[in-house]
Design a protein around this nucleic acid. Structure first.
Lengths: 207, 207
DNA sequence: GGCTGTGAAGGAATTCACAGCC
DNA sequence: GGCTGTGAATTCCTTCACAGCC
């Protein structure tokens, strides 16, 4: 397979979101032009992005929304839904565990972890808060491969160790610290730095 | 000024974060090599990114952390702190209003907005929840130019209208819908699609 | 006519390599 | 020796333009 630009992958995720939305409105067919309008890119970009992953459309007609959604989400997510955990049962972790968008996309929050005895054992939405010490055990038992980190910055090193010793394969990190797992197995990392977004936003408003 | 790649701006925000961290550890001078290690980029990239905004270092010596942080944050944020509001006082909006990282970076959450009478009038952290109907008035009175949107997807169109009619200049959008303000004045938009991040994460784990 | 898929062209961002400085 | 700043080279991504299809 050719090297697919990460930017293309990101846009494809956006297309899925948009196509699902159109689907919920009863639409069945969409053209690259229309999809482009809804996602703020150019039609050529849409076609090029999709072409990295195969042929999705009918010449002269457009794309069958249902089929494309299915194939694209198979590519990004695979056929099965994922079990996901959240580390840190504070305000942010709690809010994220209730976030409906994860479920809708096929990612189920099935556990939270914290070290505060006050929080351990509580139920948040449908998930329970577990002792972080049991991280490796419980993620194994529950078949969790993805983790969302939402702890205070001071605790990040501890968390890094727990993850390094576990079977976690991918991490979504809300803590404004660049992670550095020193493991042989590759752990995918995506950083979401919320303050950074505001820096960029204020910079953009001045242009 | 030359056209500065948005990716460079994003990395610069990351450098600020990292430099502040090093500063808090008592460091005073840093080389591009060291800064690069801490932020997972190459030293050349660090130097090139900084060079878009001016000359920051001393040849043969490195960068004076304090000075660089000050100049960079002036460039991205300006000299004054920003007042920011959050639209949507649900779980996510509430969590974001308590997020310490915003304050540390110089962005103060000074108001929330909601349409639920149950929520209006409550205090969350240091900010009050106001009726969304008063959006334009209160943002003007409190000198708010940036808004964070964290409402359910159904309410997004309503919110778009309120923003369009206000003086808001930049929007950080957590709602998985592509925004489309039909205003003449330019409103900067940054989208944070959390489900999209998980799509990409699961895709990356398969590579 | 309207549409997709794609090689080729063009443009943009990153990396290289080195001049100049401490 | 170690470091920054930067034009030049390279790599990567996007846009163009058109063949082929409905």
């Amino acid at each position: 397979m050719k090297n697919i630009p990460i930017a293309s992958v990101e846009r494809v995720a956006k297309y899925i979101r948009c196509l699902k939305h159109l689907q919920s409105k009863g639409e069945e067919i969409v053209s690259s032009k229309k999809l482009a309008e809804h996602t703020q890119v150019t039609p050529e970009q849409v076609r090029k992005d999709l072409s990295y992953f195969g042929k999705f459309g009918k010449t002269g007609t457009g794309y069958n929304i249902k089929k494309v959604v299915k194939r694209l989400s198979n590519i990004l997510k695979g056929r099965k839904n994922w079990n996901v955990c959240i580390i840190g049962a504070g305000a942010l972790g709690t809010a994220l565990s209730r976030y409906q968008g994860f479920r809708d996309a096929g990612y189920n929050i099935v556990a939270l972890f914290d070290k505060d005895p006050e929080k351990i054992g509580k139920k948040i939405g449908s998930a329970e808060v577990y002792d972080i010490k049991k991280f490796s055990d419980i993620t194994k038992k529950k078949d969790i491969k993805l983790a969302i980190i939402a702890v205070p910055a001071e605790s990040i090193e501890e968390v890094e160790e727990y993850i390094a010793k576990s079977q976690i394969k991918g991490v979504l990190n809300f803590v404004p610290v660049t992670l550095n797992f020193n493991t042989k197995r590759k752990i995918a990392i995506i950083e979401v730095d919320l303050a950074q977004k505001l820096y960029i936003l204020s910079y953009l408003t001045k242009k």
